[in-house]
Design a protein around this nucleic acid. Structure first.
Lengths: 210, 210
DNA sequence: CTATAATGCGAGCTATCGCTCGCTTTTTCT
DNA sequence: AGAAAAAGCGAGCGATAGCTCGCATTATAG
């Protein structure tokens, strides 16, 4: 009989078994969000799908929000990986090449898991994750801006921040809408044309010639 | 004593008092969505804020979803009014003028009630209103496309559907992000520059000269 | 092997949600 | 005026949500 109960720090996972539990919980949350929607993602259900008890869930996550936040975090890391790699790859290449790559990556990123992406986009405001997602956006913004500034010679006179804002918004929106409205926009050829045209728009916007 | 209870059609509002009730309910729903968030928008709370009983609520709306749907409908009508007016106004004007007007209107539309706009965008998938919102998007798309086709002479060779898709996505995204990230993008002068640059991008994209 | 910490369990509490139903009040009709 | 229809009311129902707590099981240390 321990008089002093071992102090439950309520969140750390040091052993391996517990890390597996945490993973299972995050994965289960993602699956439920995609397959059954946010309202079905009760803590009881998440635990059930993860093959874990509710009690264990609450040892690692302070609540439902934290689970969703973890899923968002994971998904964002995945996307940031793609974006960082792409920008690194094109760092020394001309604007046209870089923009084309960025557009392509944006579409790929949305294709990782469109349904999850959609659900998460909806739930972000609820999770208090706004800060993290803003950080995510800021990083994209910063990376793109750095690239653009390094290529200033190829570009007309324009505020780099503004240019970044407009380009990123436009590219992201085209990718987002393309992937989410699969019904009408679908074939590989269409996608290629779309990349061509979007690239053209952005490059035309940035280039010297008016 | 009526043996046959008067049949409750469960939704029609014929008298004036009832129409006021319905309005109050929709208005209350919007207010709660904006000020307290979706999860606080319980039917009990909505009725309370509307100064109406839950019972009355259920005489006109089959459930919570219907309330949110009504708010979405109202908001969309407001925006469509602006868009229709704008496109009508510029119907005979050159592309540059038209695009500038559209960009301006897009920002104005988002400014009507940014917070509401955000919350609604999040809740749309939940309400089964997807169809209505798609119809809304299709109308914008159709109107813009019709305009572009009428101005084909000023434009380079490009599929009108694709051009519309890219332009509308880009314009909407810039407006959306501008209004929602007020923190960093704010001053009137900035807005004007933003409109200029966005117009430049879209017009450059559509125009003949490559 | 035994003690102690770490992890896992799940019945069940409390709170709240969406919603109904029997009734009263107001309006309309004749 | 009186009767019937329309509108409004709100206590309270069943369901389910988030979450806790006392205990069981598994891993680590001495």
């Amino acid at each position: 009989m321990a008089r002093k109960p071992p102090t439950k720090p309520r969140k750390n996972a040091s052993q391996e078994r517990s890390r597996a539990t945490v993973d299972a919980l995050v994965e289960a949350t993602a699956r439920i969000l995609v397959r059954e929607g946010f309202e079905k993602a009760s803590t009881n259900r998440i635990a059930e799908v993860a093959g874990v008890s509710v009690g264990s869930l609450y040892q690692y996550f302070p609540g439902k929000e934290a689970l969703v936040a973890a899923v968002i975090e994971r998904h964002n890391q995945e996307i940031m990986g793609l974006v960082r790699a792409a920008l690194n790859e094109v760092a020394d290449m001309p604007v046209e090449t870089a923009v084309r790559k960025l557009v392509t990556v944006a579409i790929e990123a949305h294709r990782i898991d469109p349904k999850l992406h959609r659900v998460l986009a909806e739930q972000i405001p609820r999770t208090g994750q706004l800060k993290d997602v803003e950080a995510f956006n800021r990083e994209v913004h910063t990376l793109v801006r750095a690239y653009l500034e390094s290529r200033r010679k190829e570009m007309r006179k324009i505020d780099p921040g503004l240019a970044t804002f407009i380009c990123v918004s436009a590219i992201e929106a085209v990718a987002h809408n393309t992937v989410l409205n699969q019904a009408e926009m679908l074939s590989e050829k269409m996608v290629r044309t779309l990349v061509d045209e979007t690239t053209r728009m952005v490059v035309g916007f940035l280039r010297r010639a008016a």
